[in-house]
Design a protein around this nucleic acid. Structure first.
Length: 270
DNA sequence: CCCTGAACCTGACCGC
DNA sequence: TGCGGTCAGGTTCAGG
């Protein structure tokens, strides 16, 4: 997916076209995503969109009497375009806005989620037990240190665990550990406070930089305007297995953690 | 709590 | 061209 920077970029991109506008129509061509899109999504019709928020990798489109909870899964993308643009093969949902635009959700693998709730979306089961936002003050070395004391699994899995901290996926976890010079396999409860400090600092700086550059483009992610993100060229570890480490020139190695490819430098990351 | 493997899907790519 | 295998930004669940 889209990790946090890509969702944040999306949010910022679509906001100007949607907030304070009214939804004219919702077209669902393919309701079968990871979770079936509920019929109740039609409640959004004729409502005014009030705010758009991001929580972890979830996008919340709040309207007068409820909210759309949207997750892009692995391959989902969002773009604003002229209403009634002919749909392509994987264009599953259109939110047609009364200003002549539409928000289109495209998702080849259909691991995405689109739900409707009339309750506070933050209380929804999908969001209720999420951990802290990485770019807030609450995510700091003491928090990470305290949270990891009872976690024996690999540090990489710990920082990708949404119950601890949200929004960090395979790309940014790999990059942050490389920057912090921490071995991805290190049991999380072995981290010292100083290492938690380095890791937290690395995560924040990488996420901020990625947001600034408009996210990372790999295959099918584009920013809202259809332009690619520019973070890809900044990647120092992800996707660079067998290539030389930019610090020490030894070859980066890869292994699998939690069924995800993990690239690191066995010399620099200890 | 830990770990592994599988599941949900499609598309791109590689070797034969 | 085609076939089979592998891999991909995420998340959840079952079983040991």
């Amino acid at each position: 997916m889209p990790e946090l920077p890509e969702v944040e970029t999306s949010k910022q991109g679509i906001k100007p076209y949607l907030v304070n506008q009214r939804v004219q129509e919702i077209v669902v061509r393919k309701p079968k995503l990871r979770v079936l899109i509920p019929e109740t999504l039609s409640q959004l019709k004729n409502q005014r969109i009030t705010t758009i928020e991001r929580r972890g990798k979830y996008l919340l489109i709040n309207a007068e009497s409820g909210s759309v909870i949207l997750h892009r899964g692995m391959s989902g993308s969002l773009r604003v375009q002229q209403a009634h643009t002919p749909p392509g093969k994987h264009d599953h949902v259109d939110f047609i806005i009364d200003n002549g635009y539409q928000l289109r959700f495209t998702d080849p693998r259909r691991f995405g989620v689109i739900l409707w709730t009339e309750e506070n979306p933050y209380s929804h089961p999908l969001l209720a037990s999420l951990g802290v936002e990485p770019l807030t003050q609450s995510f700091n070395k003491d928090y990470l240190f305290q949270k990891t004391r009872s976690i024996k699994k690999a540090t990489k899995l710990a920082i990708m665990d949404n119950k601890i901290v949200v929004g960090i996926g395979n790309i940014y976890a790999t990059e942050a550990l490389y920057l912090a010079k921490i071995n991805p396999s290190r049991p999380a409860n072995q981290l010292k406070v100083g290492e938690c400090d380095l890791l937290v600092t690395a995560i924040k700086s990488i996420l901020k930089k990625a947001i600034k550059l408009g996210g990372t483009t790999l295959k099918d992610f584009f920013t809202t305007e259809g332009k690619p993100g520019y973070f890809k060229q900044e990647l120092k570890a992800y996707g660079r297995q067998h290539q030389p480490c930019l610090n020490c020139s030894n070859r980066l190695v890869s292994l699998s953690l939690g069924q995800r490819t993990t690239v690191y430098c066995a010399t620099c990351q200890t």
